[in-house]
Design a protein around this nucleic acid. Structure first.
Lengths: 135, 135
DNA sequence: ATTAATGCAAAATCTTTGCACTTTC
DNA sequence: GAAAGTGCAAAGATTTTGCATTAAT
């Protein structure tokens, strides 16, 4: 189990420290791709797991993982960032009541009629967020 | 000029106080629909205009306007909320370098392949954000 | 008069940073 | 042992709240 996390960090060019291994393991091992966590959530999970990590390190680590392409940041509500273990092309279902996020494969979705991209700019990415509420 | 703002507040069921009139006037008068402001931006503008408003009131007012359907909140980056004077059905172009937001009419855009909506939920809205960066 | 809104400062969140200490290579 | 990472607490940034004062109906 630790082996996968170790390789993942090495491949991303990040030193496999105890904290990073622990967090990577929590994020990726035994979970389907498409987990969504906030810093607080991961911190709580790490603590519950007996890991000795500080909240600051969780924030730093999430940012490093994102920078290294291991995670993707998703912004759906003001005040909190979510991080997604699915780094592929995809979109999101957002349940406004619970705050839950769910991935939607980009393959399934077709978007037509996007405006012309201004000269000198390029599309970094297109985010589709379907906001749901209880009926 | 003040007349339009006055009517707008009355119609929305908000008391036309000095601060609300000032802010509504700055937001809506003489600007094309589709202005985007943050609380800080509007606060600075109000101050430059000689208005006596506190930042807290700007935040409260933006939230009240949003609740009353005069504005729409747009979340594109962590840490800041943007408010859009266009409350119609539309999407956004976001320039990552400058932080600029630009509206895209929803008429132009067609989205196919959205996943089935879970039972008991309904679509509150679909946000499409095209993130652009300098090439 | 009654009721609502404002202002300020304080508090609440979420996130980043500085620096001494620890760990990895 | 050099370089990088961690922890903690402190600082930043954004947003909300409590409460006395002021303004609108």
């Amino acid at each position: 189990m630790g082996a996968a996390a170790y390789a993942r960090l090495r491949d991303a060019g990040l030193r496999p420290t105890r904290q990073r291994l622990e967090l990577a393991s929590l994020l990726f091992d035994g979970h389907p791709r498409g987990r969504h966590v906030t810093a607080e959530m991961l911190f709580a999970e790490a603590r519950a797991d007996g890991a000795r990590v500080s909240l600051a390190t969780v924030y730093n680590t999430l940012n490093q993982f994102t920078g290294a392409g291991l995670l993707r940041e998703v912004v759906v509500e003001p005040g909190t960032s979510h991080f997604d273990t699915n780094t592929g092309d995809h979109h999101h279902l957002y349940f406004e009541d619970s705050g839950e996020l769910r991935d939607v494969d980009a393959d399934r979705i077709e978007i037509k009629g996007l405006p012309p991209i201004p000269r000198g700019a390029e599309v970094a990415r297109v985010d589709v967020i379907v906001r749901l509420r209880r009926k």
